[in-house]
Amino acid sequence: MLNNNRRRVSLGLGFGLMLIAMTAPLYMNAYYQSFLLQLFMMVALAQAWNLISGMTGYVSFGHTAFFGVGAYAGALLLLAGFPWWLAVFKGAGIALLLAVPLGFLTLRLRGPYFAIAMLGLNEVGRIIATLWVDLTRGGDGISLAPKLLPSLHSNYFSMLFLALSATLLVAFIHRRRFGLELRAIREDEEAAEMVGVNTTVNKVMAFMLSALIPGAAGAVYAMYTSYIDPSSVFAPALNIQMIVMVLFGGTGTVWGPILGAGIVMFLREMLWAQFPAAHLAALGVLLLIVVLYLPGGIISLFRARQQRARPDARTGAAP
């Protein structure tokens, strides 16, 4: 019964947020739309990361590799004359296809090895984008002219769509057998295998899905900023942001990444103009507090209350 209630609150909150997001362009100026667009992007990326790392425990330090691939694919296809939505679609597709071989290769690795391998892959992506000058124009970057670009509204709703679908995907998987199996891998991969979970297929599937979203987000991002260069899209700092947001909110949960992205983005927005360097140091302090005192993320504050009401509830958040 309580579970039912919680679900209703979730749904209600979700609808409320969606309503605000859908109608925002009616009463918000372009800057706040830009801000929300970036927030949606971070939600989408955080959810994508959550899908592979939050659920299976395979910590990826290089999901920006897919973001970068999507951004370059999207920008180049747009220049080649494709309509923007098709360019986004194909950008996502390319990231997805790339994830198949990469997934099979890297997911054999465990723990820190996987994390560092992904970091290395992201760097390899950046290097390819820098050195393959004929295709990517190298360090000059790619500049997209305004007449090619979709309107801010299109970009806004594209990102909103991505954030929403990423969230729904996580929510959907969370409740299915697939999600259960992924979490089983996180708890104990050998045991999961023993009871008949095909861990390789599961992991690679999750990896592909979690590559699809950054691929699409990268393509939309390229159309939104109008200028990309290798280091601005294959950016390890962006990857760290995704991780921080997920951890902040609560790993392996549906609402955690949304909460985390929202809080971090709003804090940054309020602080950066006044304290350019200090606000990042403050973020570091906040991060330490969360890691040390709130390992389940902010969402565990809400969960804890519910657990008092429901002593039999399983721990919602990740270790």
């Binding site: 100026n29 372009a30 800057y31 706040y32 830009s34 801000f35 970036q38 970057g141 939104y224 900023t225 109008s226 200028y227 990309i228 260069d229 601005s232």
Partner: peptide
Amino acid sequence: TPATGQKLYEKLITD
């Protein structure tokens, strides 16, 4: 960074 610059000019002009 270009991305922040992009965002800021959007802010300067529209906000």
